[in-house]
Amino acid sequence: MSKEDNAKKGWRDIPIGGLITESGNAEKYHTGSWRIKRPLWSREKCIQCLFCWAYCPDLAIEVEDGLVIGVDYAHCKGCGICANQCPAQALEMISEDKSDVNDDKAEVDHEKKTE
């Protein structure tokens, strides 16, 4: 048993039957670290067709009032479908290594927004 397991709740303190009562809490699990490339979204080029939102496997295209406002880097795994399907080249895949965006900062920002 690892240290991590010790820190987890014991059998008396979790719901019976393996039930998960906090729906959608997978949001707290960040899959953004899987990425080797990230999509950069350009507000200027975006024509708001929303195809990226419809085709994103990670539910990582952020939309407000029917308009794309950015990418949720906490969950985006970097598959690149959005960039591949964008008819306006408003999404560009760039290597995480070459990214000039501070990764940590992006994730922290995202968390702030969702809290």
Partner: peptide, 23 residues
């Protein structure tokens, strides 16, 4: 699509399907 975005999605991010999965 614009109308569809009004519904709060019933599947959240943070699932662990592979990159680029169709499911």
């Amino acid at each position: 699509l614009k109308d569809l975005t009004k519904n709060k999605g019933l599947l959240s991010g943070g699932h662990r399907l592979c990159q680029g999965c169709g499911a």
